[in-house]
């Protein structure tokens, strides 16, 4: 189905059009969300939120950008909201633990392993994801979109609404910070 026709049918709240949209974009949304959130359950939850948002606000989509760009933007925004909510919850849980006798802080999940990583790269990928989680949000987003989702600089820039040179700079800084973090990780293992 052509994109314009799909949007028209979505605006009429057509179920088949919505199913077609989800079937087409679910892997793209899920892969981006899992890269940013590093948790399969959170990624599925966020992916659902993304499609609900698309369904509810399709009337506000002005078709100035591609539908995929708009869906990517919603995905990044929802994933960042999820990270913020999780951080707040973690802080609240820590505060509550101070006032309870049996105070239990939220348990840290084990190191994340992306389902698409090959077995021989398992340990290195675990270390890389751990380092990725420490990057500032915009560097992390640029890295996930470009390296994990395989988008070009142009596409990454359009989604993040920044210039190509800004994307380039973000990716360079992300790579430098990842290297620094990986060095620290490997050095602490050797010590």
């Amino acid at each position: 189905m052509e994109e314009r026709e799909l949007i028209k049918q979505l605006k009429q709240r057509d179920r088949d059009a919505f199913k077609s949209l989800v079937d087409t974009w679910q892997n793209m949304v899920f892969n981006t969300a899992i890269g940013l959130l590093q948790n399969e359950e959170d990624a599925e939850d966020t992916a659902q939120e993304v499609f609900i948002q698309v369904f509810e606000s399709i009337d506000t989509f002005k078709e100035e950008s591609k539908l995929s760009t708009w869906i990517y933007r919603i995905t990044v925004s929802k994933a960042m909201d999820h990270i913020r909510r999780k951080k707040t919850k973690k802080r609240f849980s820590f505060l509550m633990s101070l006032f309870k006798e049996d105070g239990q802080v939220m348990i840290e999940p084990p190191d994340f392993l992306h389902p698409g990583v090959k077995l021989e790269n398992k340990e290195n990928a675990k270390a890389l994801f751990k380092a990725l989680d420490k990057l500032p949000p915009n560097q992390k987003t640029a890295f996930v979109l470009n390296k994990m989702e395989g988008l070009s600089y142009q596409e990454t820039s359009e989604i993040m609404e920044i210039s190509n040179s800004a994307t380039d700079s973000l990716l360079q800084r992300a790579r430098q910070n990842l290297k620094k973090e990986l060095r620290n990780q490997f050095e602490s293992i050797n010590d």
């Binding site: 949304v29 890389l128 989702e149």
Partner: peptide
Amino acid sequence: KRVNIALDSLNQMERASAPPYFFTRLEARM
């Protein structure tokens, strides 16, 4: 060398796919 290998570990990575019955669960939630 180890840092560079770790950085390149995503190069051969496959994309993650949405779990099965994603649309059914999404519809139920809606």
